[in-house]
Design a protein around this nucleic acid. Structure first.
Ligand code: MN
Ligand code: MN
Ligand code: MN
Ligand code: MN
Lengths: 218, 218
DNA sequence: TTTATTTGTTAGGCTAGTCTAACTTTTTAA
DNA sequence: TTAAAAAGTTAGACTAGCCTAACAAATAAA
C-alpha cells in the first residue's frame, strides 16, 4: 500500500473529514505537525496515487479510494486496541500508543486472526466502531451526557476523547463503557451535572467531562 | 534506538557472526541485498553510533553494544513468533514474515506482556532460543540428525532452517519439535537415513533433511 | 474596494537510504 | 613476484520526507 508516513496522512485526512467536508492544507499540516511546504508536497503525491482530490488553492478531499485506504488503517488500529485489552490484559489507557505502531503492520492475516479470536467485535475499548474489511461500520447516534435532560437514565457507550489523561480520570471515578448513570441536576452556571452510578450515589461531573461521554438513553 | 533499516543491518550482522568472527562488507551486502557502496555508507553510520568496529579495508565486527542491540530485535522476533503460535493459533510455517514486521515495534511493554502471558518461554516455535532482556540465552548443544549413529533414540529439539518450504515438508512428514525418532540405517551412498517415529514405522529422510534437524540424544 | 491577513506555492537545501560507474587496495593465482 | 580477481572506496545521482525563506493568491477587514 503506502509508506507509514503516507498512511498517517491518510488517517489524519479521514479524521479531519469528520469535522468538515473540505480540508485545508493548513489544517492537515497542523495535524501532522509539519510545515506547509511539506504538506503541499505530500498532497501532490497523495493526489498522484489517487487518494485525494487536489487542485491548486482548492481545499482537499479524500477520494473513495483514499477513504477506504484510511479505513483499513483505522480498522487495524482499533482491532489492535481491542486485542491488547481483551486478549493481552492491557488497560484501556495503555493501548493507543502501541496501536499507533501496530496499525502499520502489513500482514493482514494478523488482524483477521485478532478479529476472529475476539469474535468480530464491533467497537474498540473506547467505544469507537471497528470498520469491517470493506471499510464499513455503523455509526450509532449516541448523545453527549451534557445533552441529556435531568433525571434520565443512560448507559456510557463511547468516548469522544481517548487521551490517557481522560482515561485515567475515568478509571479514578470508576466510569467504564456500560456504566449506568442517572442524571440529577444540571448547574446552570457552569453546566456541571450531578449524577449517580455504581461507584457513586451522588457525584458531580464537570461539563468538560460530560462533553466527552457518549451515552445511550435507556 | 535505530531506524528499521539499521535494525535490520544489526540483525544481519548478528547472524553473520554465528558463522565467522569477522564479517566482510560484501557478505553483509549480499545478506541485505544492497550494493557495496550502500553497505559501505551504512557501515560508517553504524560505526559512528558505536554498534560496530570498522576501519577502512578491515573486516567488520559487532561491538558489545551492537550485539546487545541486535539481541533485542531477535528477542522481539522470537517472542512474536511464539506468541503467534501459542496464543493466536498460527502454524509455525506462517509466523516468520509477521514477526519480521513485529520485531520493529518500539513499545517494549508489548513484548514483555507476551513474554509474561506465555510464562517466559525459552525457545521460539522453531526451537531457537529467546534472549532475555539483557540479550542472554543458553545455547544447548544439540546434534544434527545427520551426525547421530545408527540405532540411536533422539528427540527433535530445533531446526537449522526455518524456511516455509522446510516447515511445510515437516508438516507433511508429521515431524515436530519433541518428536522422538529412532535411527536405523544410514545409506553410505547419499547419506540418507532410515528412521521411525510416531507417524512412520519406517521412512527415509534425505541428508538435506537430516542436516537441518537438531536433535537431543536420549 | 482597497488593504491587511491568511493560505498556498515555489525555490533551494538537508538526511536517510539507495543506486551505477569508475577507481584503488588487498588478496589470490599464475 | 607479478598479474588477475575480488573486495572496498569514492563520486555523483535519485526518492522520500522534512525544513526555511520568499513570494503569490485568496479571503477577510477596514
Ligand atoms: Mn487509539
Ligand atoms: Mn480507540
Ligand atoms: Mn523467524
Ligand atoms: Mn524462529
Amino acid at each position: 500500500m503506502a509508506t507509514i508516513t503516507k498512511e498517517n496522512y491518510l488517517k489524519a485526512l479521514y479524521f479531519l473529514h469528520q469535522k468538515s467536508d473540505a480540508i485545508s492544507l493548513t489544517d492537515l499540516g497542523k495535524t501532522m505537525e509539519v510545515s506547509k511546504p511539506t504538506v503541499n508536497d505530500m498532497v501532490k503525491k497523495l493526489h498522484d496515487r489517487g487518494w485525494i482530490k487536489y487542485e491548486k488553492y482548492k481545499p482537499l478531499k479524500l477520494t473513495d479510494k483514499g477513504r477506504k485506504a484510511a479505513m483499513q488503517i483505522v480498522r487495524k488500529h482499533r482491532l489492535s486496541e481491542m486485542f491488547l485489552v481483551q486478549v493481552m490484559g492491557f488497560g484501556w489507557e495503555e493501548v493507543h500508543d502501541i496501536a499507533e505502531e501496530l496499525e502499520h503492520i502489513k500482514a493482514d492475516k494478523l488482524f483477521d486472526r485478532m478479529d476472529e479470536l475476539m469474535g468480530f467485535p464491533s467497537v474498540d475499548p473506547h467505544g469507537s466502531p471497528i470498520p469491517d474489511k470493506n471499510g464499513n461500520y455503523n455509526k450509532p447516534n449516541y448523545k453527549l451526557l451534557s445533552q441529556v435532560p435531568e433525571n434520565s437514565k443512560v448507559v456510557v457507550r463511547a468516548l469522544r476523547d481517548s487521551s490517557t489523561e481522560f482515561l485515567l480520570y475515568l478509571n479514578k471515578k470508576g466510569l467504564q463503557l456500560g456504566t449506568e448513570i442517572v442524571t440529577h441536576q444540571i448547574e446552570p452556571f457552569d453546566k456541571s451535572i450531578t449524577v449517580s452510578y455504581a461507584s457513586y450515589s451522588e457525584t458531580t461531573l464537570s461539563s468538560s467531562v460530560s462533553n466527552r461521554l457518549l451515552v445511550e438513553v435507556v
